[in-house]
Design a protein around this nucleic acid. Structure first.
Lengths: 143, 143
DNA sequence: TGCATTTCGTGCGTATACGCACGTTGCAGC
DNA sequence: GCTGCAACGTGCGTATACGCACGAAATGCA
């Protein structure tokens, strides 16, 4: 029997959107969106990235990231400075308030991460992650 | 060592966005977006759905689906009619032109599906699909 | 049968996702 | 040093994703 070829794409889409919806729901009272949470998490990992490097790591589009940074800057959660060596670039860093906020968001989303992990056989979790990464890599490679 | 808890969410996000970008790229000359392609695929599977049922199957938000339907209707790819039994609802169906278009889009995205499947050990593909579905199900269940 | 509740689609507002074009700055090669 | 090209951020346009509120129609229950 030939498996419906679109099962994998559809399953991937469904899983991502479900996660995104649940995260937005869990964070709705915090004034921060699911994607802003991803941005803050990325920033809290490495400090003083350029906007482009930040976008690369999320991964997201530089122009999308810019719009998000404008909003986060208004909330005082991140800060942008001129780059010391490259006057084209700007460095982005998370503020102290941003870090406090992030820790709070991390707790608020803990149950979502647990649900994700618990829904899968423990032994397969790393396989799943590995598969998803291979999948990303295969598609990023231009062709 | 404790694995970074956010690895699975981040891998899921990266994989989905990569797939979405590649699909948009592959379809850019067709005048149809990746998400419109998903909608057409869903419609071509079952006929004469209500907007809500269509949204449920994608899965997507009813108000999002409506906006997409307005655009697709302008292109003559879908058609909306009043529901025979329920005058609140509208039925959505794919047109003949929509079906032709869909077959063309299906070919244009064939290489993406191949890349996805080929990037993963053949034996794990069904495991991956199964894991993603469990993951979705765990999150849809309210809590 | 009458009324409260639910469900359907619509319309509006905000945030993402991305492409593309633009001006500015950096850099490589001459 | 100059020049051509690449990289960074910005601004704009379109399509999604979703919440919320609204009016209209269906449904359940007393």
């Amino acid at each position: 029997m030939m498996t419906e070829n679109s099962e994998l794409p559809m399953a991937l889409r469904s899983a991502y959107l479900a996660m995104h919806r649940q995260t937005d729901l869990a964070l709705q009272r915090s004034g921060v969106t699911a994607d802003q949470f991803v941005l803050l998490a990325t920033l809290s990992r490495g400090d003083a990235l350029t906007q482009r490097e930040l976008a690369r790591r999320m991964p997201s589009d530089p122009s999308t990231v810019r719009a998000m940074l404008v909003l986060l800057e208004k909330q005082g959660l991140i800060l942008r400075d001129v780059h010391p060596n490259d006057s084209r670039a700007r460095t982005v860093a998370i503020t102290a308030a941003g870090n406090r906020k992030f820790r709070q968001l991390w707790k608020a989303t803990e149950s979502i991460r647990s649900k994700m992990i618990d829904s899968i056989q423990p032994i397969r979790v790393s396989d799943l992650i590995s598969s998803l990464r291979k999948l990303s890599a295969a598609m990023e490679r231009g062709n």
